[in-house]
């Protein structure tokens, strides 16, 4: 039959399906803008975010031409603070997710592939960690250690984020471990490391990527929550959470202080989740069209 029999490749590739997905384009657009703002904050921000411009005259000004998002109670420009806050919030979230995803994937894959006692220990730790709410865990740690740098906060957020991913990757690994192509690799004489890195991980990683993308939104919310409680990113360093915190006491008259960072969080989290869901759909192996002898659907048993 030759080439005619295998002509579906462009339509069925993961990338093809992602690009044609409207959600993905919108989410990537939003996240791209947010990232650009974070990267070029020093150039884009009209004022120094920490500078108290004029504490007696420019305190708590509503949005105007000079200050599009108004000023805060210390007469600082909210737009500038929001831009620098994007830097902090996004960096913390991305680094934390990267660390937790890497660690969680490795641990999950090893636990699932090696099995036995290793698996039992890792999974009991995960179960235990799951039974304690992350925010409570963080509050306790912070209460014990006191003032935290942004770096420590990132590490902490990463520390509470890896459970979900490792459990997910372990479950995937368990299923993949017994797949015939893994048995085939072992039969060829492949070492355990080779089987893990070339056969198990590439097939388990899809769900880890989806989970990581979805958790970016969670970590942003968590960081905002902690900062709101006053135990996350400390003022005067701006983050989305602590800008909201500053405005929270005067919600009725200085509304712009909570509304704009709140919108920033909403839009970013929404975009992350949309991207995660689109990835999940695109990576779903059921979406990989089988060759034509089963097309269009596996109905002709």
């Amino acid at each position: 039959m030759g080439a005619a029999s295998i002509g579906h490749r462009s339509d069925s590739s993961v990338r093809g399906r992602l690009v044609s997905d409207g959600r993905v384009r919108l989410a990537l657009g939003v996240l791209g803008c947010v990232a650009l703002v974070a990267i070029f904050a020093p150039m884009l921000a009209p004022y120094d975010p920490r500078l108290q411009l004029d504490i007696s005259h420019l305190q708590s000004q509503p949005p105007s031409f000079a200050h599009p998002l108004g000023t805060d109670t210390f007469s600082r420009d909210v737009l500038s603070r929001l831009m620098y806050g994007t830097r902090v919030s996004l960096t913390v979230a991305l680094v934390a997710v990267f660390l937790s995803a890497t660690f969680g994937t490795m641990l999950g894959a090893i636990a699932g592939y090696v099995g036995g006692a290793v698996d039992a220990i890792v999974m009991r730790v995960v179960d235990a960690a799951f039974s304690i709410p992350a925010i409570l865990l963080l509050i306790v740690v912070i209460a014990l250690w006191g003032n935290l740098s942004v770096v420590t906060l990132t590490l902490l957020l990463a520390g509470v984020g890896w459970f979900t991913i490792s459990r997910l990757v372990r479950a995937e690994t368990l299923a993949i471990r017994d797949a015939d192509y893994v048995v085939a690799a072992r039969a060829l004489g492949a070492s355990g490391w080779r089987v893990l890195t070339r056969h198990v991980l590439p097939n388990a990683i899809g769900s880890a990527v989806v989970s990581a993308t979805l958790s970016v939104g969670n970590i942003i919310l968590l960081e905002a929550g902690l900062s709101y409680l006053g135990i996350g990113v400390r003022p005067p360093t701006p983050s989305w959470g602590n800008i909201i915190e500053e405005g929270s006491t005067r919600l009725s008259d200085v509304w712009w202080l909570t509304l704009f960072p709140g919108l920033a969080i909403l839009v970013t989290v929404f975009a992350c989740n949309a991207l995660g869901e689109a990835l999940r759909d695109a990576l779903d192996p059921r979406q990989l069209l089988p060759a034509h002898d089963d097309a269009p659907i596996r109905m002709n048993g």
């Binding site: 029999s5 034509h292 097309a295």
Partner: peptide
């Protein structure tokens, strides 16, 4: 020899020809 053609592009003429 060969395989069944995909149902999106049945050949013209006899479908078993090839």
């Amino acid at each position: 020899p060969g395989t069944v053609p995909p149902p999106t592009v049945w050949p013209a003429g006899c479908r078993f020809r090839e």
